[in-house]
Amino acid sequence: MLIDAHCHCHEFSDEELAKFSEIKLVGVSDDATSSARTLELSERIGLVPCLGIHPWHVDRSTPADLSTTLKLIERSNAPCIGEVGLDKKFVPETYEKQREVFSAFLRLAKEYDLVLNVHAPDAWADVVEALRKADVDKAVIHWYTGPLALLEDIGRYGYYITINPAVKIQKKHRDVAEAARPDMVLLESDGPYEYRGLKLQPPMVKETIKVLAEIWRMSEDDVVDRVYYNASRLFRLT
């Protein structure tokens, strides 16, 4: 089975989601409202729910929104918090508030032994440091395009990264795919995001499989088996 480890499922219609039935979806959320929809979708179509507040939405989130999201995580059986993290690239003006919000999710992840599905553009090292200081054991840093040297620490700490279909056209992401150990890689679409003309959707993880098979000099079936094992281990899939 193919697993899309980072998809904004709440942005797709029910009809669109039905077309992705051959792929196991890990649905990330952007705020309190989308967290509730992600949880509802998990109960209805069986996706893996990640609840949280995206760094891009921190400026619009009130203390009440954060409290609502934290309580939703505590009261649900969601195994994952996300999309959460830090972003110095796109929203540097809210960085201090991002750190406060991310700290709340870090504490909850540690307390309940949850996976963190993390966003970290230009804050890659800060995120890894925050994860370690919080003693968080399970995390995946999505669409990693950070320093290649940091991959060694990410792998040593037992964390994962995702490779996105953008690997076909984004050189720094391909460099990451070439440098990363296969045992630390998951697949993602980040759908329905659009990147340089690519309309990202879950079925596109199949294209990523082809690229990784070329880079890793493995058969496509072996790549599928490898990344499935990684994802099933992280998200405790059976």
Score class of each variant (00 low, 15 high):
Ser219Trp: 03
Arg174Val: 03
Val26Trp: 00
Pro121Trp: 04
Glu194Phe: 13
Ala149Lys: 12
Lys88Pro: 06
Arg226Asp: 02
Arg37Val: 12
Asp137Pro: 00
Thr238Ser: 07
Val58Met: 07
Val205Ala: 01
Ala139Leu: 13
Arg132Ser: 08
Leu72Ile: 01
Ala109His: 10
Ser189Asp: 01
Glu214Cys: 07
His173Tyr: 09
Glu129Ser: 11
Lys138Thr: 02
Pro55Phe: 04
Asp221Tyr: 06
Thr238Val: 08
Asp14Trp: 08
Ala32Leu: 13
Ala139Glu: 03
Asp190Trp: 09
Thr38Asp: 05
Leu2Arg: 06
Asp113Phe: 01
Asn117Leu: 07
Gly46Asn: 11
Glu100Ser: 15
Ala32Cys: 15
Lys89Trp: 14
Val136Ser: 01
Pro203Asn: 11
Lys199Glu: 13
Phe90Lys: 06
Pro79Trp: 03
Glu129Val: 12
Ser42Phe: 12
His173Met: 14
Val58Pro: 02
Glu15Pro: 01
Ala78Thr: 00
Ala123Thr: 05
Glu96Thr: 09
Gly46Arg: 14
Pro147Asn: 08
Val26Asn: 01
Trp124Ser: 09
Phe235Tyr: 15
Leu116Phe: 07
Pro203Ala: 04
Arg107Asn: 11
Ala130Cys: 11
Leu66Lys: 04
Gly146Asn: 06
Ala177Glu: 09
Tyr112Cys: 07
Gln201Leu: 11
Val28Tyr: 08
Thr38Ile: 15
Ser61Thr: 07
Phe20His: 02
Ser76Leu: 09
Pro165Met: 05
Glu129Trp: 04
Val58Asp: 05
Thr208Asn: 01
Tyr160Trp: 06
Pro49Asn: 08
Ser189Tyr: 07
Ile3Thr: 02
Ala64Tyr: 08
Thr33Ser: 11
Leu212Trp: 03
Leu212Ser: 02
Leu187Phe: 13
Asp14Asn: 13
Ile45Gly: 06
Val101Gln: 03
Gly46Leu: 10
Ala231Glu: 08
Asp183His: 15
Asp65Phe: 10
Ser34Leu: 10
Gly82Lys: 11
Arg156His: 14
Cys80Ser: 05
Val28Glu: 00
